[in-house]
Amino acid sequence: MTTTPRGADETPAAENLPAGAPLPTGPGSPEPVESSQRRPRRRSSLGRQGIEMFLENRLAVLGLVLIVGLVLFSFVGPLLHRTDQVHTDLANAYVPPGERGYLLGTDGIGYDQLGRLMLGGQTSLIVGLAAGLLATAFGTLWGATAGFLGGWVDAVMMRLVDALLSIPALFLFMLIATIITPTVPMLVLTIAAFAWLNPARMIRGDSIALRSRDFIVAMRGMGGGSARAVRSHIVRNAIGTVIVNATFQIADAILYVAYLSYLGLGVPPPAANWGGMLSSGIGEIYSANWWLVYPPGILIILLVLAFNFVGDGLRDAFEVRLRKR
């Protein structure tokens, strides 16, 4: 008959102990696990689960691949496909794709269309990213401050936002673009000057919900100021909303660049962007020069959709309920 060593079955399991009872000590007893060892695992698990949820969204993954591909096309492509985008070459105007060594043909003044698309992508991406991020940053601070302070400060700040939102943004952009010389920095500032309104309203809602939380009340009870609360607590806890909103703001800024350039208010030649190329190609559509219209239009659609797809994926990844399912 097999004998059991004395004391091996006398130690009760931790899960069988009553609530609040101390864990047994001595040989054979389970070693306690410190809470500091469990926290990193939980955080890494949540982060890993968020990444898995993002990867489950096939459209989000497709959008990320498109963004990376278009960035490489616009910034790495000119290093591999060198063209002259400054001097005109009327002898090679309207060359169809595939002829004389031009993969996508040439436009009405002899510019290589493929190289022109790469150069135009740089302008569209730089203006869209810079304007979108700048608008999101300013709108986040504005909305977080208004929601946290509340009272008459919130009323005044948000009434200004409502007043500016009542004016069509495209009309304001056109008005400003006709007054100033449209350059890349001016386009960034012009678009960001009015694109911050929607982020401000969204972050204000999160700020109102967060300002009554226990950690905010405890911080203020210990003498913490409003600036520290907004910077260190409100903005950090609303970072999911900020990041998701930034992707949509970038997509909107790229569309605004295309709008202004299509109306002739974009960056003047020899600089290029996809909206200006699309505007120039519209007049050639009845001349069977299709390669001047479809490539820039398709690239604009793909880039805007890519940022929207990524924004949808990030929204799901940052959603707490979905991450804890």
Rank of each mutant, 00 (worst) to 15 (best):
S45G: 15
P295M: 09
V68I: 15
L299M: 14
G147K: 01
I300S: 00
L55D: 08
G26Q: 08
L305E: 03
A93R: 09
I126A: 09
G224E: 08
D312L: 03
P168F: 07
N198V: 13
A163D: 00
V156C: 06
G132K: 04
P199S: 09
V235D: 03
L46M: 14
L134R: 05
A218K: 04
I176F: 11
I180Q: 14
G47M: 15
R321H: 12
F171T: 12
A155R: 11
T11Q: 12
V242L: 13
E15P: 00
D154L: 06
A177F: 03
G115I: 03
L170W: 03
V153W: 13
R220P: 00
S212K: 11
E10M: 10
P168Y: 04
L314C: 04
A60S: 11
H87Q: 13
L165E: 06
S166L: 06
T145I: 12
A251Y: 01
G297S: 08
T2W: 06
P12S: 10
P168C: 05
I180T: 14
G120D: 01
A288H: 09
L170Q: 04
V68K: 05
Y286D: 14
P5L: 11
T136V: 13
Q249H: 10
L62T: 13
M219P: 00
P182D: 05
I282N: 10
T25Q: 15
P185K: 05
Y94E: 01
L265W: 09
A131L: 08
T4R: 09
L133C: 13
D112K: 00
L303S: 13
L79R: 05
L119F: 07
A91I: 05
I167R: 00
N237V: 10
G281A: 04
I300P: 04
A135G: 05
L23R: 13
R58L: 11
S36E: 15
A169W: 02
R38K: 15
Y102A: 02
S36W: 15
R100K: 15
R43E: 15
T145L: 15
Q122P: 00
G110Y: 02
F138Q: 10
F148K: 04
G20I: 12
M1T: 11
I203S: 07
A169Y: 05
S232P: 02
Y111T: 08
E10D: 15
D112C: 02
L197K: 03
G283P: 02
S226C: 07
T3V: 12
R325T: 11
G221R: 06
M222Q: 11
G283D: 12
G221L: 10
G151Q: 06
V242P: 07
L197D: 03
V127Y: 01
T190A: 10
L165M: 14
A144Y: 07
F173M: 09
G110C: 08
R159K: 03
L117M: 06
V161F: 04
V127T: 07
S232D: 14
L104D: 02
G147M: 01
F54K: 02
S74A: 15
R82Y: 03
I285M: 14
A169D: 08
A246D: 08
P97Y: 01
A218Y: 01
F148L: 12
L175Y: 06
R204S: 03
P168L: 02
T25G: 14
V188R: 02
P295Q: 08
N198Y: 09
P185H: 04
P268F: 09
A21F: 10
